[in-house]
Amino acid sequence: MNTAVTGAELLRRVHGLAAGGERVVIGIAGCPGAGKSTLAGWLVDRLTSAGLPAVWVPMDGFHLADVELERLGRRGRKGAMDTFDARGYLALLRRIRAETATVVYAPSFDREIEQPIAGAIPVPPATRVVVSEGNYLLAADEPWPQVHAAMTEVWYADLDDRVRLDRLIKRHIQFGKTPDQAARWVAEVDEPNAARIRTTRERADLRVDMDALGI
C-alpha cells in the first residue's frame, strides 16, 4: 500500500478504474481534520475538468439530526460512529452504483447550522465517478464492511497529528466554538474517534500522505 503518491498518480488511478465503463465510487477515510474533504473536492474538480464527470457525496449528509441526537442522548458526542445513519448511507451508495439511468439525490451537510440537508446533491446519469469521504468507511462494525464493499476503492488520508489537530481546532472556532470549547471538543470527542479510526487504516486500498500530496 503506497503512501507517497502524487496528485497525477491519483488521477491516473481513478481513470484506470473508470476505463471498464462502470460508475466508480471512491471512498476517502481518515481521522477528523486529516484533509478528507480537501482531497475529495480536489479530486472531483480535477476529474471533471479532465472530462470524467465526478460528484462529491459526503458521508456527513448522514449525520443524525440534532433533534434525534438529543432524544438518544448523543448530541454531546456528535461525530461518533453511532451518530450517523450508516444503513441509510449504505443504501444510497448501492443506489449510486446501480441507478445510472436516473438522477440520484444525496444529502449534504451544512456546517453553518451543523445539520444534514436532504436531497441537496444530484448525481446525474452522466456521472462517472462519485467521491465520498467519511471517518468510518473502513470500520469492522456492521454495516461498515458492507459500505466498504459498495465502493470501488477506499483510500485513507493520513496527516501529521500536530498539523491535523491545529487545523481541527481552527475549524471548530470558525464555526462558532470558543477556543476553549474547541480544544475541549477535540480532546473529548474528536480524538477518541480518531483513535478508533486510526486502527482501520490497514484495510485501505491506498494510504495517501496528505503532507506529501500538498494540495
Rank of each mutant, 00 (worst) to 15 (best):
T100K: 13
G88F: 06
P122R: 01
V103P: 08
E142H: 05
A126D: 12
P107G: 04
P125H: 03
Y156V: 09
D110Y: 09
A98D: 12
A91W: 05
P122S: 02
T102H: 10
P116F: 12
I121Q: 01
R162G: 15
T127V: 01
E153C: 00
A120T: 08
T152F: 05
A86E: 03
Q146T: 05
K170I: 09
G134R: 02
A126G: 14
R164V: 07
R167T: 11
Q146N: 09
I113R: 05
E153I: 01
I113W: 04
I169F: 08
A101N: 08
P143M: 03
L137E: 06
L93C: 00
D160H: 02
V147R: 15
Y156E: 09
L90E: 12
A86R: 01
S132C: 10
R111K: 07
R95H: 00
Y156L: 06
T127K: 00
K170A: 15
V104D: 03
R162A: 03
L92T: 12
V130A: 04
W144C: 01
T127M: 00
A140H: 07
L138Q: 12
T102Q: 14
G119L: 12
A91K: 11
Q115G: 02
V130Q: 11
V163S: 15
A98F: 07
V104N: 10
A150P: 13
T102V: 14
R95S: 01
E133N: 05
A101L: 11
A149F: 11
L159K: 11
L137F: 06
Y136L: 03
A120E: 12
A149W: 10
A140I: 09
E133Y: 02
A150Y: 13
A157V: 09
R95Q: 09
E112C: 02
V163I: 15
T152I: 02
Q146P: 06
Y105P: 07
D158E: 15
A150G: 08
R111W: 12
A150S: 10
P125N: 06
P124E: 07
E142V: 14
I121A: 03
R164M: 08
E142D: 12
M151W: 11
E133D: 04
T127F: 10
L138W: 10
G119H: 14
Y105W: 14
P143F: 11
R164P: 00
N135C: 01
T100R: 15
Y156M: 04
I113Q: 06
M151T: 05
V131K: 08
V130E: 13
R128D: 07
